[in-house]
Every structure is written in structure tokens, then in C-alpha cells.
Design a protein around this nucleic acid. Sequence first.
DNA 1: GATGAATGAGCCTTCATTCAT
DNA 2: GATGAATGAAGGCTCATTCAT
Lengths: 218, 218, 218, 218
Amino acid sequence: MAAIEQTDTPESQPRKMPRDARRVQLIEATIETIARFGYSRTTMSEVARMAGLSHGLVNFHFQTKENLLSETLLYLSDEYRQNWTGAVDAAGVDAAEQLYAMLAADFRPEICTPGRLAAWCSFWGETSGRPLYQEKCGSNDEQYNDYLETLCRRMNADHGYSVDPTRTARVLRVTTEGVWLDMMTMQSPYEAAEALATLMVCVAAFFPRHFSAEGPLH
Amino acid sequence: MAAIEQTDTPESQPRKMPRDARRVQLIEATIETIARFGYSRTTMSEVARMAGLSHGLVNFHFQTKENLLSETLLYLSDEYRQNWTGAVDAAGVDAAEQLYAMLAADFRPEICTPGRLAAWCSFWGETSGRPLYQEKCGSNDEQYNDYLETLCRRMNADHGYSVDPTRTARVLRVTTEGVWLDMMTMQSPYEAAEALATLMVCVAAFFPRHFSAEGPLH
Amino acid sequence: MAAIEQTDTPESQPRKMPRDARRVQLIEATIETIARFGYSRTTMSEVARMAGLSHGLVNFHFQTKENLLSETLLYLSDEYRQNWTGAVDAAGVDAAEQLYAMLAADFRPEICTPGRLAAWCSFWGETSGRPLYQEKCGSNDEQYNDYLETLCRRMNADHGYSVDPTRTARVLRVTTEGVWLDMMTMQSPYEAAEALATLMVCVAAFFPRHFSAEGPLH
Amino acid sequence: MAAIEQTDTPESQPRKMPRDARRVQLIEATIETIARFGYSRTTMSEVARMAGLSHGLVNFHFQTKENLLSETLLYLSDEYRQNWTGAVDAAGVDAAEQLYAMLAADFRPEICTPGRLAAWCSFWGETSGRPLYQEKCGSNDEQYNDYLETLCRRMNADHGYSVDPTRTARVLRVTTEGVWLDMMTMQSPYEAAEALATLMVCVAAFFPRHFSAEGPLH
DNA sequence: GATGAATGAGCCTTCATTCAT
DNA sequence: GATGAATGAAGGCTCATTCAT
């Protein structure tokens, strides 16, 4: 499991570290359980078994199942945000480069694991009737979308003509979600590389001066 | 709920009609229950209560919960397929016209119900670990995608140059799914009209000779 | 099914006959169901299905399940009594001949069917906590035992010495029941002929002047 | 084993017990429940109530009802086997003494409890259609019968003439079962002493040199 | 008489949660 | 911190019984 490293070093907070490590271990087990059995068949016992820990410990650390799932979603959400913001930060100032970095980040092997895909899809599916997803991820998704929109706007300016940047950004975002869903629901799903290539075709259609189907035009 | 009205009077189909009508009634109640409470909180008793019937009757007609959900998905799948094939059949021979009809069909008020959207998203989310979705909808989804791809290929031919039709079709399909997901998961979701407009922006980017952001040209 | 013929001819009670025939048909189906599935898994629906009739008809004829089972036991009990009394009546006045007739009657192919054996054993097993068996069969069993005891007493008189006739009769009766149980519970049960031979060994031990292991000494 | 005390106060029953002790407690409660209500009316909740515990605990220790009943039968079967083999071991080498010990063991007050008798009869009755009894007790019963047959053969050798030892052993075994059944099904059943006396009459008839109706000679 | 849809009580089982050790 | 026995609410399912047709 690709556990996200806590920013606290063991030395700085020696007493707290084991506690957080346990939490991360249990959250990773939760993701894996959701992935294997689906949201509706994810039980506290199964999570504990997946983590190789005792039954009661899950409640000790998370009090309730609701809370465990909530923390899991928050964990995924933070991880996702750090992933794309980190990629953008590393990409320089060019809008096209940033856009490419942003989209490609979603298909990095650390993020785009079967377990994480399945967990995301499960949370999307359970949205109805429960505000959990909105509460935990709403602002992150908005932030992602807003940044995407800004980039689109910047590239439009280069073109001299404008395709609605809100809708363009939306297409890019939901296409990303869509190919994730594909990788979950299809009998013989395609690889992350093909998923990214699909996105590139889309970006190239919107921004032919900045992108070809192969990627950004330097 | 856009309940399926049985236009047939009892006289026209005297014996068998009641049985099927009940099944449809219970399936509609299932969709509504999934929409309101989510997949994992959908219980047989809740479905029965939603339909105003006793819970024993649900088992009488569907034997198991698994089967009820399976039949519900099949029902949605059939409805969806009939909706878009019907729209295509009514659209004439022009590829762009057919494409527009196909995409617009997904946002008709009969199909694009909050309940149905939620149910679809729930089924997508529950795919992990259970082959139910693939089993019931795999071939339908494939058929939809294949037809989309054919249309893209035909329009490419008009252009004289070719954007990968497989990936293009995929973008169109997952964008549709994506805006559906948006309408489910967003705090203040946009309307079906805005969703279709978003798709039009996408189609126009791929096929500028056939589409503007407002719809098919001429 | 070896239905016991009602003494009423169709001519004498034409209107009632169908009703009784249905009852017998359902009782035979009950016996068969108990035999195949066991008492605790015998359901009204299964009985109806076994009889090839509709579900509601069982209740129409027997009102309750309790009553159906009660009537079934009564039916078996009457059949059993008529069988052994008939055999004794046909056997002449000699005590040994009557005893042989009585014991052999229990292994006639009409009585000693797998279905009937299983049903009897089931009723015996369900005796605890419910007075059903005693109520329906107590007096019959007593009558059987009393007659057996009388025969033992008569044969003792021939011998000149007396083995306790009550206990002797009891041994003969429970041995019969015991080999019936054997035929039900054993992996590779023996045949009715072997069961009767076992009883003959027992009778010969008690009454060596009247019986050999092969049967009564004319 | 002494039946489960219903008189246990909450204080006398510690909240947590060793695994095996709880299992035995629940098995004893199962025997008692079968005895009181019959096999078909034995429910998990009733077993739990009889033990003074929550119904969830029964599933915690036995997973399924099927398994609980299976383990109960196994428990009875082991207890029974240990009882007669122990009695035989304590009886010396003489065949008649061993036979007496073996038969008398079946009527010891620890084994010949109303609850245990009822449970055995219930399991015999439920044999139809389910191989549970054969599976758990078949080999034990065979072992019992084989040993009985060996003893009969040895006593026959003393006599100089031979009554079929297989059938003789079978009579003794089923007579034991039969008087057990009597003690269950009769309105005014006789006592264990009378049951054993009945068996002695039978043994004396087969082996007059070794047994009188009062028991083994010399 | 006969059918089979409909009801609801009750059963087995699961599982989140508590708690003694 | 950690464990796992114990609890009880709730869910799926069965089935005796009722009843409209």
C-alpha cells in the first residue's frame, strides 16, 4: 500500500507517531476493503482483518464506522489535492505545461491504483442521501475545477478566440472521472496510459495550438 | 418519480398484467429508495414501504434482494437503451443529427430524473467486487459506445482528417456519465440543459464543421 | 402412493367422495414431504407442490398446518391398526400363528415404505413438548401392546414356566420400532426381510417351543 | 453433565467465560431446548434465553444454527461413547460382565436424562433427508454394535451352540433405543430401572447360562 | 371449489458498538 | 493501548394464514 508520508518526522512528535501510523494503516485497510468488497459490504471487522489488527481497535481509533469512512474520504481527498497541486507547482509557469501536469498527475501509479479508483467510485455512488462527499471533498473539487478553468482561460487568451472556459474545464474534469469509472466498471479496462491519451485527444481538440494528441507542443 | 404508467387497461391484458405491473411498481420503488437513501441503506422493508406494500410481497415477486437489485438494473438498462436507440431511429440518416439525438436523449426529462441519476451512480459505485453491473449492462454500454464510434468515424470522413474515433467516442460517453455524476455529487448542481450544453462544447471542439456550441450546424 | 381405500364406495356417497379423496391425496403428499425433507422442513407449500395442487387448497381442506399434521398422524395410525388387526384376524386361533402374523404385518410392503417409516420416526422425534403423538396414537399403541402381551401370556402357559409377559411384549414391540429406526438412520440399511428375521431370532429366544429363527414351528 | 442451571444469578455467571465453557453451556442449553420444545421449534433465540445469554452470542460461538445442532449432536455422541466404553473398561474381562456393564451404562442417571433422551429422539426423527445423524454418529453406533456383537459371539462360544450374533446384538441395541423412545413417547412412562429390567429379560432369553432376568449369574 | 397474490409474525444472521480484562 | 467476548438493533428471508377473484 502506498501510504502517504506524514509531514511530521518521528523525531519531532515521537509520542504521536505510532497513533497516526495506526490510523493510516487502518485507513489504507479501509480503502482496500472498499475496493475488494464494495462500500455496502465493508464492515469494521473486515477492515480490522485486512489490517491484521483486532476488531475493537478500529473503534478505539475511530469511534464509529461513520467516522472511519469520513476520515478515509478526507485522507483520499488530501492525498489527491497534494498530488495535483504538487504536480502543478513543479511544472513551471506555462499554462499548457501546467494543464498537462495537472491531468497527468491523476494517472500517476501512486494515485491511480485499483484500490483508490474503487474507493473513489464507491464514495461517488454513496453520495445520494448523504452529504458526506460534498462535506469532505466539495471544496477540493471546486478548487481543482477553478484552477483548471483559469488555465483554460489563459490558453484561450493565446488563441484569440474563446471557447467557454467553464464548460471546457468541466469537460476535462469529468472526462478524468469518467475514464476512472471506466477502469472500474469495464470488463477489460484499458490502462492508465490509454486513459491519459484519451484526455490528450480531448485537450488537443480544445486547444490545438497548445496540444497535439501526443501531449503539449513544447 | 416518473412512474411507468401502465397504459394498458386490465381488460386488454387481463391475467398477466397485474403481475408485471407489481414488478414494475416495486422496481420503481427500488430506484426511488436507492436515490433517497443510497445503495448501502436500501432495504427490502424500505422498498416495500416506498411502494406502500408489505415487505413479504417483495420477496414473493423477486425472491431475494440480490435479484431485486439485478432486475432493477436490467430495467434501467433496457429503458436507457430503448431511449437512445429510439432517438437515433427518429433522427434521420445524417451522422451529426444522429449524434445530437443520441446525446440529447440522455438528458430527456424521463431519463434524466434525480432518482434515475442517483440509481445509476449507485450501481457504478457498487461495481467493485461484484460483477453485477458488467453482467447486466456491459453489452449495452458497448453497443452505445460502438454506435458513437461509428458516427465519429463517419464525421471524420467528412473532415478529411481523422481524430482517433475510439477515443473521441470515449470522451463523449464518459463526459455524459461525468455530468450525470456532477448532477449527483455537486452541492448546487447545474441543470440538464447546462449539462447538454457542456457536451455540445465538447462535440463542437471535435467536429467544428458539423457542430457549434449551440448544436448541429444547418 | 398406496392410498388406503375408503370404505365408502363412490356410489354410496358421491358428493363426499371427491372431498375425502383430496384429503387423502394431501395426506399422502404430507407423508412424502416429511419423508423427503424431514418434519422441520415440511411446509404447506411443499405439500401442495408435492400433491400437484395449489397453495391455498391445503388450508381450505385442513385449515391449519397443525391440523394437517394431526390428521396425517391419525391416518397413519388407523392404517397401522387396520393392518395388524386384519393380519391377526386372518391368522386363526393359535397364539404363535397370531404372533407371527402380527409381527410380519409390520413389514408388509404397503406399510413398510420409506415414506411411512420416515414419517413415523419424525412423529416420534417431535413428541417432546407436544402431546400430539400420545393423543393420536397412545391408545392404538396400548392396544397393540396389550394384544401382544396376551399372546405372550398364552404361549407362556404352554411352556409351563413364565417369562414376564409385559416385558417380553415390550421387547417385541420396541424391537419392531427399533429396526424401523435402523432402516431410517443407517447408512446402508438392511431390508424388511432381514428386519423380520431379526425379530424371529428374538421371538425364538423367548418362545423356543413355538418358534425357531425361521418362524413359527407349525 | 448436569443441565444448565436456570437459577444462576447474573453474579454467578461471569460476563466473560473461556471459550470452551461457553460452548458447553450453549450446547447444554440447546439440548434442553430441543427437549422442551422439540427439534422443529428450537430457535436460536430460545437457546440463548435458556442459557441466559444474548442470541448474538450463539452465532458468535457457532456461526450458524446448523453448526450449533451439529456440534450438539457430536457432543452427545462423544459423551455417549465415553460412557459405555468407560463402563466396559471398568467391568473386567468376563463377557457377561462386560455386556451387563455396557447395557446398564445406558441407563445411568447422567446419561438417561429426560433432556438427553428427548434430544436423541429428535435427532433420530430429523434424519430423513439430512445426513447429519449418520455423519456425526454413524461410526459411533457401528462401534457400539460391533462390540456388542463380539460379546455375543464370546458368550455363544460358552454355550456350544450359536444364535446369530449379528441379529442378537442388533436386538439388544434397538431394544435399548426402543425403551428410550418409550420413555419419551408414553403417557406414563416407566423408570430407567424398569427399562433395564426389560433388557435383562431379553438378555436372559438369549443367554440363559450367563443371565437371569435379575442380571448376570454368579 | 380452486387459485395465487398479499400480509405479517418470526426466524437466522450480520454487524456496529460496548466493555471487561 | 490492545483484545475479543458480549450485546442488541436491524436486515433478509420463510412461511402459515388470509382473501379477492
